[in-house]
Nucleic acid binder design. Structure first.
Lengths: 344, 344
DNA sequence: ATGAAAGCGCTAACAA
DNA sequence: TTGTTAGCGCTTTCAT
């Protein structure tokens, strides 16, 4: 009974406070009317026993786990660690735990849904766009309706709630910046697209070119994979062209860095010979040589807003009958890797 | 009853298979003897109903959440995303979920323990050395004994299980490499230490200097904070000395990059004027200019081994009465940022 | 080999 | 305002 190993239950608190378990529950959840006097007795008893609520019991009874599931891109992606950090902060402060989805099997729809059906998580924060399959929307439109927030760089299924940044517009601004610097032959290194639509950053590139009435030479679009290695390959590719672009917009900073490194290895200096703009503003970009002109996304806000929206939906399902779509603004950061044409 | 919204329970499966819930449970957990014929009937019923076990109920009944808690360093640390990814893979494949700890309040011992006491998690993977307080070991030696694996760059409390890399030895090898290149005046940029002991990487630096019978000029040790910005400050500091070191060992790659960037901003080129070695081999190090000589840690193994050890302990507590200490080997990767003295 | 029943710790409906 | 009671879905004796 006084065994210090025993984890106290609500009954122990009730006994100590000389009230019923129901009353303790009411005090702890601020539901129902409880007199001031008993309330304080209960609080005292909680202190005395060191009671902590048993989440498993609560989850079983309430059918809500107070836990959010996140699916994040596979490889150590530095971009998302900030985003997730922000999401965790929000979740924690609102009493939610944050579970990270691991992969099992090859049907994401199924294993993600399993967390929900098994009462491990109440909703999903989906940051991993490699999981964007045609079956995904089924999760959201499934009879059991697991609430989902989609947050990635591609155009999300409109049936899903989404919190994204203005990838397309920001990309257009980045390319426009190069145009303003006098560049005309502008290339693009695209990342992988997992959706049926073209990637938003590629679309932004085309938008800007079209707006300036510049033709898009399809040979100037190199399909890569978001890695530095992929950027290096891109450099090789562009050098193989007889008329290399004078500026290149890369769909992320890793590829931009790979491009610069690849060019430099062959004597082509950035920005002297070629201007390069990236996307994301990862921490090294400011300290790279040359420092990288890039698009900075509001990562912290992305994670925060996504988590807040999900929890709001979880706590007041009714209010959100229609999918919510939030778009957060990004910012162009001009540094050394882009220069006026001919200034080298 | 046939409402597709209803999540099937073990009772539904039992009814469908015309057996009792107990039997279904036995089949699903492979415990107890069950005849082949009923076993297959149960499996068929599971298929038919689309049953998934309710974790909350199972946790409540068994007093084990099948969930691991991780505490990871605050800011988007690219190093740990790989480590954690590996840990998640292991956990998932062994049927465990992975919960990420958020901070609440300023008593880590308390809020970490709370996950355990509240039946949310069975054990802790501690990667965040900023949580190393003198009260931490209390978690492990607490009457309730939450199992913990410590995995960070500092010397872990010997009462905790630990899975670490050979930070000290690897640091010594890095410095020895500089010595072999003819350097004698070698500096060190140290990271923050949250333990009462000096940082392992600093100790390794001293070890190597002592082994080569080189005096350590205490002015050559600059205390910084693991950031690129901190590295830049370090560069300023060293330049303010009248007799700058000819080589510097930085306690991580971010600071090494900051150093190089800071020096270059003032006309001091690496490796021409100063050799620099980092630690971690983050992805940009290979693509930085100059590419970085650094120490590569077995990140994937770190996460994998830590998770495996924790789960082994969870599943067979008895066997591990003494703390386990694993040390994984790191590897020196020599690239462009270090050069023989006078070769510039 | 299988089933009946108890109970893990909590909350909510109903009584008092 | 407070207590009593039932039951969330599962596992595990204890019978049979």
């Amino acid at each position: 009974m006084d065994d210090p190993r025993k984890i106290p239950t609500i009954q122990d608190v009730a006994r100590q406070a000389k009230v019923s378990a129901a009353t303790v529950s009411r005090v702890l959840s601020n539901s129902g009317r409880v007199s001031e006097i008993t309330r304080s007795r209960v609080h005292a008893a909680v202190q005395a026993t060191g009671y902590t609520i048993n989440q498993a019991a609560r989850t079983l009874r309430m059918q809500r786990a107070k836990t959010i599931l996140t699916a994040v891109p596979g490889i150590g992606n530095p971009f998302y660690s900030t985003v997730i950090q922000a999401a965790i902060s929000v979740a924690t402060s609102r009493g939610y735990g944050m579970l990270v989805a691991g992969r099992l099997g090859d049907d994401p729809t199924r294993w993600l849904m399993e967390y929900y059906v098994s009462n491990r998580a109440d909703g999903l924060l989906l940051f991993d766009d490699t999981l964007v399959t045609h079956t995904l929307h089924e999760i959201a439109t499934d009879d059991r309706h697991m609430p989902i927030i989609a947050s990635y760089d591609q155009r999300p299924d409109p049936r899903l709630n989404s919190v994204i940044t203005d990838n397309r517009e920001a990309s257009a601004r980045a390319v426009q910046h190069l145009i303003e610097y006098g560049h005309r032959r502008i290339g693009h290194v695209a990342g992988t697209s997992n959706s049926p639509f073209p990637h938003e950053r590629l679309s932004g590139y085309r938008d800007a070119m079209a707006a300036a009435q510049l033709p898009v030479d399809e040979r100037f679009i190199y399909q890569s994979d978001y890695t530095m290695e992929g950027g290096r390959s891109g450099a090789e590719y562009f050098m193989s062209l007889k008329d290399m672009p004078t500026a290149i917009f890369a769909a992320n900073d890793e590829m931009a860095i790979g491009l610069i490194a690849g060019f430099r290895a062959r004597g082509i200096e950035c920005p002297r010979d070629v201007s390069i703009v990236g996307f994301d503003d990862i921490s090294v970009s400011e300290n790279y040589h040359p420092s990288l002109t890039t698009v900075r996304q509001p990562r912290e806000a992305l994670g925060r807003v996504a988590a807040e929206l999900l929890i709001n939906i979880l706590e007041d399902q009714a209010e959100f009958s229609e999918p919510v779509h939030e778009v957060l603004p990004s910012e162009l950061v001009v540094r050394e890797s882009s220069a006026r044409i001919g200034s080298g």
